[in-house]
């Protein structure tokens, strides 16, 4: 029994060996001329972002592809680009950070309970990493996102799903004053970016907002603006 299996295996391998030998011998000048410059290879990703909070609209989401670097680190000062995003929701500087190979902004605010799918792609270079950031706009300087998740070996048609937690940029004191909250909670009366750093000046996890209903009498925020982790659900789908 065993022996016959071995024989079959041997026999079946033999023609393959012969064939491959034939191919080598048959390679002709014609085939060499058929070699053409390859089409540009495009690596594309669809990133779907869902806002899991009760009452925190999200600023337009920045999605970036990169090969190196991180966009924030616990215990380090926030970059100016991150500070601007976290205090005002303006993602333009973030999208132009030095290590960004391709960046895409969402089309607008994502309201609580809502989702948006953002497409980002890069030509001729398979990106190693993806990052994403957005501000919780009814806060002083809270943001959430993904910091350098690896895309290596993600096949076309496959996806990664995850949830994110919220961070505090550490660049603006969490006063929750009407003059400091850019989101709808202040009806447009609040300031966004201010280059003065009057807080810890180190990125950490956000402690949540206090609100007037929970003991901060000078807060413009109410119980409706409170949030807990996680704050986003994200799916990264490689489409090409």
């Amino acid at each position: 029994m065993k022996r016959s299996i071995n024989n079959i295996a041997f026999v079946s391998l033999l023609p393959l060996a012969l064939l491959s030998g034939c191919n080598d011998n048959d390679s002709s000048p014609m085939e060499v001329e058929e070699v053409v410059i390859p089409e540009p290879v495009v690596y594309s990703y669809e990133v779907t972002v869902s806002n899991l909070t009760y009452g925190q609209p999200l600023s337009p989401v920045a999605v970036v592809l990169h090969d190196e670097g991180q966009f924030w680190q616990i215990g380090e000062s926030a970059s100016v680009a991150l500070e601007v995003l976290a205090e005002s929701g303006d993602n333009s500087s973030f999208l132009m950070e030095e290590n960004v190979l391709a960046g895409q902004s969402g089309t607008g605010i994502i309201m609580p309970g809502m989702s948006e799918t953002i497409e980002v792609s890069l030509t001729d270079n398979e990106p190693a990493l993806l990052s994403l950031a957005t501000m919780l706009v009814n806060t002083n300087d809270a943001f959430t996102g993904i910091n350098a998740i690896t895309l290596t070996n993600l096949p076309v048609g496959e996806s990664i799903s995850l949830t994110t937690r919220s961070y505090d940029a550490g660049t603006e004191k969490n006063s929750e004053l009407i003059s400091t909250i850019p989101g709808p909670a202040s009806s447009g009366a609040g300031e966004g970016f201010n280059e003065i750093r009057d807080d810890l000046d180190m990125v950490g996890m956000h402690a949540g907002v206090v609100s007037v209903d929970d003991g901060l009498s000078t807060s413009v925020l109410t119980q409706a603006h409170k949030f807990d982790n996680p704050t986003l659900h994200i799916t990264i789908n490689r489409t090409n």
């Binding site: 996890m205 206090v210 003991g215």
Partner: peptide, 23 residues
């Protein structure tokens, strides 16, 4: 819990500094 009264109130903790969320 904390509160916003550093000279009294229910708590000696500052509710804008000493709270946290997990993790």
């Amino acid at each position: 819990l904390g509160d916003d009264d550093l000279a009294g109130g229910k708590s000696d903790l500052d509710n804008t500094v000493h709270r946290w969320l997990n993790p």
